[in-house]
Design a protein around this nucleic acid. Structure first.
Lengths: 339, 339
DNA sequence: CTTGGCACTCAAAGATACCGAGTGCCAGCC
DNA sequence: GGCTGGCACTCGGTATCTTTGAGTGCCAAG
């Protein structure tokens, strides 16, 4: 749809604009090596590219700036090298060598690390259902009607669900339910249906049913919702000079629900990059998101991503996100750090 | 140290400046009701206040702006009404009526709520040691050398500590240690020393000792460090117009360690407000912090606070922070929401 | 001690001119 | 037909200068 020369010109303009944040003029483009045409020719091509919606002019007598469509073409035509430069690879290596600690801490650290690596904001979303193998289940009574279910997964994650029961239960009931659940759920997978046979005691079975339900159905109760970790939000401030833009973007970064929806949306569309207004969020029209899901033990467990200005270094961002998601998945699959 | 008239003039200037963010001139001050002096007199007084370090002039032929010392005088002379206005009280009521869920979620929500209430950034710090009564202790093996200790507290909080042992242990050892710890620690207080008698089995005792240590000594292992929740960081962007300032402040808000140290420092000095450069953090020289510790079941459990520009509405901030810390402590003391 | 008066200062806001990067278009050339 | 050099034109950005007015400091008189 774009002949070679137009494509080359468009790519050059996008690259130049990403680098300088200044509208790109025909003379600058005509100077790129490998394209030996005069600036007049470039001008003609550029005006076609503008007519077709790949570029716009901020005003007459200024150079051109890529539109979302222009960036999209650029990103799609990117040969995914998937390689970081030497220094960055080194950073990734040291980070994951040192990475350790609780799951949440690890994910938070990863978001900050991603941000430092790319100089944009880093995001890590942990999907609600942790697909780990259940290592232990325990029910603890807090008051006459409230019990808490604590599940320890093989990777060291601890899930808790607070349950409110419909009638008072005794400590003996709770203990019986705890033992019963432990017997039937240990070794199973979090979020998978498991049938737990009744014990015969109606009180105990009530607790067992509620607890099993809360484990199988991640959305019910507890912190079953996805967790979001945002790191390096401050770096967004450096990417924009309009204070209003910064504010709007930070605002979105705090609304975890919006972020999660947004990321899920991009994944559902089979994309790994969303540019400017492609995602529906008005406040992020000057931003792009680059994401990559990660898997723990072969099961999708979450997503890592980067939020930056539309004029971001897509190649680096894509590579960074890909590498980090892979390493993160691997690190988490290995279970706790001590092994 | 300041006569009545100077104090009145200084207060008027601070109030006016907080309201308008513009240097305050002598004419504006001379118009305040209750002070019937001419602008010339005010000018004389103002030049004395400047000499004494309460005010500065951005440049000749501009009005005056309060210094940190000026704000300090203002804050110290504030009669603490401790009352929020009608609408805000209403907001606090509804928030705490609806507030529920996991402890972490609750604290995060509180930080966001504080931010919404005051229009500055909200901060909640949870001190490392949760002083709750221990409801249950369990040790779960993750691999041959790694075990995780899960403690459920009476208020529904779940603490975990990952331990790496010096030698391989069997499941039987872990189970024995778990049972032994449960017997001796249940009912005790988190963070308090408890003597657990040896079992005689050296393997089991090794686990028991390590686990007990991690519970008693909150700093060792696990997520014993204080947790920080920051809400409404985006609102900081509205308070400043220099993009650099916004960046620096956001940066600090992400460095949890700095925040914790800073807040502890203020508390140690017996203050509840730190203005501008009073705290040592250079990046926050244009910010003030208003804090108030909260207690759960009579024991200090953390701190809530607000970070805003030095020209913040101190009376409202102080009242908001005081009310929220009290209500938060109460809400957490009541234990889980279901009761 | 207070006050009105007055000269002085200086940032901010306009006004004006200029510069130059960049465009569009055209006529000539390959 | 497509490419190119040339040229007139546009228009945002910068620099310079002026004006304006809020605000000060000081002084002499009340």
């Amino acid at each position: 749809m774009l002949d070679d020369r137009k494509a080359a010109i468009l790519r050059a303009i996008v690259e130049e604009y990403i680098e300088t944040a200044q509208p790109v003029g025909s003379v600058a483009v005509s100077r790129i090596p490998g394209l030996s045409v005069s600036s007049a020719t470039v001008r003609n091509e550029m005006s076609v590219l503008e007519r077709d919606g790949y570029l716009i002019q901020p005003h007459t007598s200024a150079g051109r700036v890529p539109t979302d469509k222009g960036y999209r073409f650029f990103v799609d035509s990117l040969t995914p090298t998937g390689h970081l430069d030497r220094e960055q690879s080194e950073q990734v290596r040291t980070f994951f060598a040192k990475a350790h600690g609780e799951l949440e801490k690890m994910l938070g650290d990863t978001s900050r690390f991603l941000s430092g690596l790319t100089d944009y904001a880093g995001v890590v979303v942990r999907q609600g259902a942790d697909p780990g193998r259940i290592r232990s289940v325990q029910v603890v009574g807090l008051s006459a009607r409230v019990v808490i279910v604590v599940v320890v997964l093989a990777n060291g994650a601890v899930e808790k669900r607070t349950l409110e029961l419909s009638e008072d239960v005794s400590d003996a009931h709770v203990a019986a339910a705890s033992a019963h659940l432990a017997r039937y759920l240990a070794g199973g997978m979090m979020g998978h249906a498991v049938s737990v046979p009744p014990t015969g005691d109606e009180m105990v079975d009530g607790i067992v049913r509620a607890a099993a339900e809360s484990i199988v159905h991640p959305s019910s109760g507890g912190d079953g919702e996805p967790q979001v970790f945002v790191g390096g939000a401050a770096r967004m401030a450096a990417s924009f000079d309009a204070i209003g833009t910064v504010r709007r973007v930070l605002d979105i970064l705090e609304q975890q629900y919006v972020l999660v929806t947004l990321i899920r949306d991009i994944l559902d569309r089979g994309l790994s990059v969303a540019i400017g207004a492609e995602h529906g969020v008005q406040s992020l029209k000057d931003c792009s998101i680059v994401i990559s899901p990660y898997e723990v033990e072969g099961e999708p467990a979450g997503t890592v991503g980067i939020l930056g200005p539309t004029r971001m270094h897509y190649d680096q961002a894509l590579a960074a996100v890909a590498v980090v998601s892979k390493r993160l998945g691997k690190a988490l699959s290995e279970g706790v750090d001590g092994r």
